[in-house]
Simulated assay, not measured.
Amino acid sequence: MDLPESAIEERLKRAGIHLHVKAGNWCALRGNDHVSHNLVENTALVACTSGTTGLARFTQHSAAGVLANLQGIQEYLNIGTDDHMLVLREPSYLSVFVGEILLAIAHGARLSFSPRRFTPHFFVQTVLNGGVTCLTATASVLHALLPTIKREAAQLRSLRFVQLLGEGASLETIEGLATALPDAEVIHAYGLTEAGPRLTAWSSRKHPRERACVGEPISGVHLRVPDAETGELWVHSSAMMLGYVGERGASPDWLATHDYGRVDERGLVFVEGRTDDIINRSGIKFMPTQIEQLLNEHPAVRASLIQARGMGYGIRLRALIELVEGQQVQPDELLRFVRYRLPSAMWVDDVEFVTVLPCKSSGKLDRAVTTA
């Protein structure tokens, strides 16, 4: 059910969560005096993010912004007191705190977190024995669990929602989940700590034929690509941060997401990757995901990751390949499979087979890691 912001706030207060905190009285950030003494007025929540720099920065959020984002999330993730949410992510992320923890508390749902390391058996038994109705995880985690989900689908019938977030999801993962769990609504959410954290949501029920997009902006969020059809996405949100701790200046009205994509005439948002992932080879600019999508169409390939090494004309492209269980394929066959469909500047030079694609601690795929 949808609750007005005032009702959400009241329920959070009854649970001991008070979002209206005076900046001068903030003292809950593990004794970090630098942070606690440099907050702007109306700060109710502080989150840590590495953003695009890789360096830790603290974002400040108002109670009104948090409640506005929570309002938008509940409009597409309609849970209630009969629901049990299982989160396969670290609870320290702002996205999890707002989109799962506060949402569950506001609607009286049961909430469970997995241990940092868990087995597919643990996952299946938790869903089966706990009557889990809503599952949330990164695309990489759900991709790794996909064989188990397909094999044990009959044991997972309690699921009403399966939500992917935190990174882009492959069509194979989304289609695999939708096919294996036809009674569950698959949701692919996209967000940004500085402006939400949630910005858009795609639903298998609402847009079943548009599985390559991340859906429509939620309430209070607007996305656009200035002066171009495809380019860097910019966001305006009613949940925009108040600013970074210790950095002067108010948060801008429109914020660059550093994500590369487009917004079509229907308002659906397509994200192709990070702007800093763009490869410029022989004067041709392209996203590694364009190659990965083609590689993933091969029946022996479960997932792929393109890594660029070198600079300028000396750039070499390496494809890390995770194979479907029981399948084998020669590197030359994969190279031929994509080459006739791509310009020469996008041709892959090397293929390396891996058991699991490399991921960061956040669960997102890691293009920078060295595997050999």
Rank of each mutant, 00 (worst) to 15 (best):
G312D: 11
E292P: 00
E272N: 08
R336M: 10
H258I: 08
A345K: 05
F353D: 06
G283V: 08
I279Q: 07
V338Y: 03
Q328R: 15
P358A: 09
H258V: 10
G326L: 12
S361G: 10
K360P: 03
Q293W: 14
R302W: 10
G246S: 10
F337K: 09
A250S: 14
S282G: 12
Y244C: 06
T275I: 11
G310C: 12
V348I: 06
G312P: 01
Q307V: 08
E322D: 04
T355Y: 09
S251F: 04
Y340W: 15
D276L: 02
F337R: 12
D277M: 04
L323Y: 07
L305C: 04
L357G: 08
V245M: 01
P299R: 13
V351T: 05
R339W: 10
R262Y: 03
L268M: 11
T275D: 06
G310V: 09
T289A: 08
K364P: 00
L323V: 13
T257F: 00
P331W: 07
E272Y: 03
R274E: 04
I315S: 02
V271T: 01
E272Q: 14
D276Y: 02
V338E: 02
E352H: 13
R336V: 10
I284M: 11
A250G: 07
Q290P: 04
G363D: 06
A303D: 03
V348K: 03
M287K: 03
A250T: 12
Q327G: 14
G246P: 01
R341Y: 08
V263N: 01
A303Q: 12
I278Y: 09
K364E: 07
W254P: 00
R248D: 13
P288R: 13
P299W: 05
C359T: 15
V354T: 09
V356Q: 15
S251R: 10
M346D: 02
D276P: 00
V354Y: 04
L323A: 03
I279T: 05
G326Q: 12
I315H: 01
R281C: 01
R266I: 06
I291T: 05
T275W: 09
V354A: 03
V354K: 09
L317E: 02
E247M: 14
E322G: 00
P331Q: 09
R316F: 06
G267S: 03
R367F: 05
G246K: 11
